[in-house]
């Protein structure tokens, strides 16, 4: 199948490895304005940006650790803690609100309270605004959600 099939694939993250991190950073460092690509690449490999990576990023890009910290903490996408195995990014923006998104969010919060396998995050718009409520489940877009459909999708992840 085409490129779209690959996106929802389950990703397993590596444990911290300083040598690997240095290689990842080095591979992106030649770009102009490389910091965001570097932090994305580290997140893809480790699931988050470990504190140990910050000084390596700073010295490779010749910027201060404070600058790296500033960028790392500014953007919603970057995480400093290891992730749970699964991530549900549920859209909370107006177009999904208009289609029952808030009731679904309340339900999901109850359903996933204390859950140690699926993290729930708010996201503001996935561009699926005529098919909401919508979410990204492990990076894969899902729409026309209601509690029953979301339950089925989460059950597949629990398996």
């Amino acid at each position: 199948m085409s490129f779209v099939a690959k996106i929802g694939a389950i990703v397993t993250f590596s444990a911290w490895d300083a040598t690997r991190a240095a290689a990842i950073i080095e591979a992106e460092a030649h770009r102009d304005g490389a910091l965001l690509p570097v932090l994305h690449a580290l997140s893809r490999a480790f699931g988050h940006v470990p504190d140990e990576a910050v000084p390596i990023v700073a010295s490779t890009l010749n910027i201060t650790r404070a600058e790296v910290h500033g960028v790392l903490t500014f953007y919603h996408d970057f995480h400093r803690e290891p992730p749970l195995p699964h991530m549900l990014k549920l859209c909370r923006a107006e177009a999904c609100q208009a289609r029952g998104g808030e009731a679904l969010a309340a339900w999901a919060q109850t359903r996933l309270a204390g859950c140690d396998t699926v993290a729930l995050e708010a996201v503001y718009c996935l561009g699926l605004c005529a098919s909401g409520p919508a979410a990204l489940l492990d990076g894969r877009p899902v729409a026309r959600l209601d509690p029953a459909r979301l339950d089925r999708l989460l059950a597949e992840k629990a398996r």
């Binding site: 304005g33 965001l36 690509p37 890009l61 500014f74 996408d77």
Partner: peptide, 25 residues
């Protein structure tokens, strides 16, 4: 192609340029 990181304000053109340069948006 450059990928954003979940900041709505980066749709504002000068914040976007800051982000492209590797800084806070």
């Amino acid at each position: 192609v450059r990928v954003g990181a979940g900041a709505y304000v980066c749709g504002e053109e000068t914040a976007l340029l800051e982000s492209l340069e590797g800084r806070r948006g």
